[in-house]
Simulated assay, not measured.
Amino acid sequence: MHAIERMSAAGDRPGRIARLALAAAVAASSAPAFSQAPAPADPPISAWVMGTTVYRGKSKGQRYILHASVIVPGNPQNPGGAAAFGVDDAGNVTFIGRTEYQPTQSLSTVRRKFETPKPPMTGEQAPRYLMVCSWPVDDAHKANGAVTTGFGERDDSATSISKDGTLQESLNVKWTSVPSARAKGKFSKTDYCGEVARTGKSSAPLWLLPGKET
């Protein structure tokens, strides 16, 4: 009798294994799925150039300004510094300018007046890519934390040029935020942001000519 029971138990073992496997599969399929946390988004930037070349009249000359900002994650309210760099289609990196100190770091901005060697400026003279950097500073305006960077690409579809006869010509250029993977490598020759944060100077040549104060 015991021998028969043992034989029956042994004969049913494959069936029990199959039932256990099926139960485990059902339990796994009904268990809540844990989705992978999305990668943090790259800091967005906002950047544009606006300006006018005047050919006649009392205001004859150039008036161009570049504005570039990066939104720092976490909305930090501590003071900060900022810098901006550009790279053209040939891969040449240029230093656009810096802000030594601003009261809050959350929206770090660089504004610079500039002129072209030969007016008027065209959209193609503007950098293809921008890198805008931000860092926290102490009371002495010295960098004392990690650098945040955001990147943008020139949006040629948004470039506009308007002419007022032969009197003046106005230009508007914009950049659109892009993932760091698209543009970061174009600025990888040197730690441009860290260099300016530490020393206040850049080894990259200045982009175009400093504009006159008006």
Rank of each mutant, 00 (worst) to 15 (best):
A140E: 14
Q168S: 15
S160V: 13
K184W: 00
A158V: 07
K201S: 07
S188A: 15
P136E: 01
V178F: 01
K142L: 13
P210L: 07
G145V: 06
G211A: 07
K201F: 07
V173I: 15
G165V: 06
R154P: 00
P210C: 08
K142I: 11
A140Q: 15
E195Q: 14
D156R: 14
G145N: 01
K163L: 09
S203Y: 10
W175A: 05
H141A: 13
P210D: 08
A146C: 08
V137N: 02
L167C: 14
S188V: 10
G150K: 02
R182F: 12
K174Q: 13
P205D: 06
L208C: 08
P136I: 03
R198A: 14
N144V: 12
E153H: 11
K174L: 12
W175L: 03
G211W: 01
G200F: 02
K186S: 10
S203F: 08
L209P: 12
G165E: 07
G165L: 08
A204G: 01
L167V: 15
D155T: 11
L171K: 00
T149W: 05
Y192Q: 03
Q168D: 15
V173C: 07
P136L: 05
T149R: 14
G200L: 05
G211P: 04
A204P: 01
G150T: 05
A158D: 10
D139C: 00
T166Y: 15
P136Q: 05
K142R: 15
S170H: 11
L208V: 08
F187V: 00
A158H: 09
G211V: 06
A140C: 11
A143V: 10
Y192N: 05
T159V: 12
R182K: 14
G145S: 06
S188E: 12
D164M: 13
T159N: 09
V173W: 06
T148W: 00
R154Y: 01
A197K: 05
G185I: 08
W135I: 04
A143E: 09
V173D: 01
S177I: 06
D155R: 08
L206P: 03
N172S: 15
V196D: 03
W207A: 01
T176R: 15
K186I: 00
D164V: 12
S170I: 08
S160K: 14
T199G: 04
P205F: 04
V147G: 04
S160L: 12
E169C: 09
A181D: 10
R182A: 13
T190A: 12
S157Y: 07
E169D: 11
D139M: 10
R154F: 01
D138R: 09
A204D: 05
D164N: 14
V196R: 03
K189H: 10
P179H: 00
Q168E: 15
S202N: 04
C193G: 02
I161T: 14
W207K: 04
P210W: 06
A146R: 15
S157N: 11
G145Y: 04
V178K: 02
D156L: 13
L167G: 13
R182L: 13
C193R: 02
D138Y: 09
A181K: 13
V178I: 11
F151V: 01
